[in-house]
Design a protein around this nucleic acid. Structure first.
Lengths: 197, 197
DNA sequence: GTCTATAATCCGATAGAC
DNA sequence: GTCTATCGGATTATAGAC
């Protein structure tokens, strides 16, 4: 990222580099352990350039958060729309989450595990964000269609995806000894047994 | 807590008050949004008294964390030891966790949901702490005794408790409309279906 | 053991040149 | 649009009186 060989960045390219560097630093070290000067140094740009593109540090975090949440929303809704049946939709979502956790761990760390409300005071809890809302809807439709037992939607959603989310945390903590996607079938099977009729 | 009517605290009582105030502030506002001056003001003591009892801010957080983790460990091991059978032990653990979430939300917020590694760099991930280790052991014994299917212990533990932990997060975020303990039977039932033979 | 006052440092944000 | 230099303020931690 901070290759000294790169020529000076400008405009949108600079803005993109700043966002990528910020994700890396926020994800690895946390929001409060990352100063604007750290971002400046790692991104190879100036303080002034950062403040030209982002009102302040909080706005930078907000922008990053919105971007990533939007990307996750799109990815999940694609997976849901191209499949039919609650079980297959759940499988697609968990497979996507597991793949993203391996391929873009920092994105998952920042979006799913960070405590945003500590530095984005007006942000609603992550459970009310669109990705989580879609997961819940999948379960609700499963209940309507008779694939899933008639239980509280919140309970159904947490039972189906709670284990998968914990496994993602374990992967990001470096606790698992095998690659996360290898656990997919077992995790999905457990979740489905929990909610199926 | 910061009753102006209270007489001046000294020694262990002061130390205890500082820890209680710190838990409240760290839990409500986060470690980095809480200054030593905030603690001083809210606890009704002086900066000097705080630094007399704790080497620095990080040591204060470490002390609080160790205390609470120890309390949780004791509570969980008591529940496990006074019950027999994997299912009953799991029920006891989840019931305890749900009760604690309602009665001591700040403790649960700080112990289970905070990102300690951002300010306690040498702390291992929460999943390797004693409470989580005991939960895993309960599932492993269930596999040995034939009550639980033969699956990866990590998968079994996350399947059994992952939903409960997500429900606790929802409660702490104020998302649930009914008291958390009312969901106990449904959550336990889902977890058990996920792992039983 | 507790207090007040202050030192030393760091950070977010701004000003103004180019 | 990007840069450098710097300001004002907040924070952690210490010094030294009581």
């Amino acid at each position: 990222m901070s290759d000294s060989s790169k020529k000076r960045l400008r405009g949108d390219a600079l803005r993109k580099t700043v966002l990528e560097t910020t994700l890396r630093l926020f994800s690895d070290n946390g929001y409060f352990n990352t100063s604007i000067h750290d971002i400046r140094r790692e991104a190879g740009v100036s303080i002034g350039a950062i403040y030209h593109h982002f009102r302040n540090k909080e706005a930078l975090a907000q922008c990053l958060y919105d971007d990533l949440l939007q990307r996750m929303s799109v990815a999940i809704s694609e997976v849901v729309e191209e499949r039919t049946g609650c079980r297959e939709q759940c499988r697609g979502i968990i497979a996507l989450l597991f793949d993203l956790t391996v391929e873009e761990p920092r994105m998952m760390q920042f979006v799913l595990l960070a405590k945003h409300r500590e530095y984005l005071p007006d942000e609603p809890p992550i459970c009310s964000s669109q990705p989580f809302s879609m997961m819940r809807q999948v379960l609700e439709q499963g209940i309507e269609s008779g694939e899933v037992r008639t239980i509280e939607p919140w309970v159904a959603a947490t039972a189906m995806f709670g284990g998968a989310l914990r496994m993602m945390s374990l992967e990001l903590d470096g606790t698992l000894d095998r690659p996360l996607p290898e656990y997919l079938e077992q995790v999905l099977d457990c979740g489905w047994r929990a909610v199926k009729v």
